[in-house]
């Protein structure tokens, strides 16, 4: 085990694609919803920190919260882009004509939440991702009837 770990550290990392495309039940909006909720929670926690004269421990907490917010906004964007580009198909546009705009706005909100500590934007992101989850649920229901 240790030898493998040591060898592994010396090896360059390449990417291998387990390529997939066809929609199935593995698609799930839950990771995006959890990531969006985490962004909101981090914004609340950052806003709850003292504004002046932060102690070392508070400064450390601030940096960690910003990092978690950044990482979960990135994850949220990645998850919704997978749903947008891999799960949803042109035929879904007939049922959800605002599909592209919904996803585009949600992706933009992920970026905004990376750039800012903005409670309103974080709340909008949670609502946007919940909206996507509702669309996904309807699409799944429709495909299971067919």
């Amino acid at each position: 085990m240790r030898i493998i770990s040591l060898i592994s550290k010396a090896l360059p990392l390449n990417i291998a694609y387990a390529h997939c495309d066809v929609p199935c039940s593995i698609y799930d909006p839950s990771p995006a919803q959890i990531a969006a909720s985490t962004v909101l929670k981090m914004v609340q926690k950052i806003n709850d920190l003292p504004k002046n004269n932060l102690k070392v421990q508070e400064r450390n907490a601030f940096v960690r919260m910003v990092w978690v917010k950044e990482e979960h906004a990135r994850k949220c964007k990645e998850e919704i882009l997978i749903l947008w580009t891999d799960y949803f198909k042109p035929e879904h546009l007939e049922i959800f004509p605002n599909l592209h705009e919904t996803f585009w706005k949600a992706a933009k909100l992920c970026s905004k939440n990376k750039q800012e500590v903005n409670f309103k934007a974080a709340l909008e992101l949670v609502k946007a991702v919940d909206g996507i989850a509702a669309i996904f649920k309807k699409a799944e229901k429709k495909s299971s009837k067919q």
Partner: peptide, 15 residues
């Protein structure tokens, strides 16, 4: 040239 290689998996077809 290397007999051993390391890869990171992307996408879901081997789940």
């Amino acid at each position: 040239i290397l007999p051993l290689l390391k890869f990171k998996v992307k996408e879901k077809s081997m789940i």
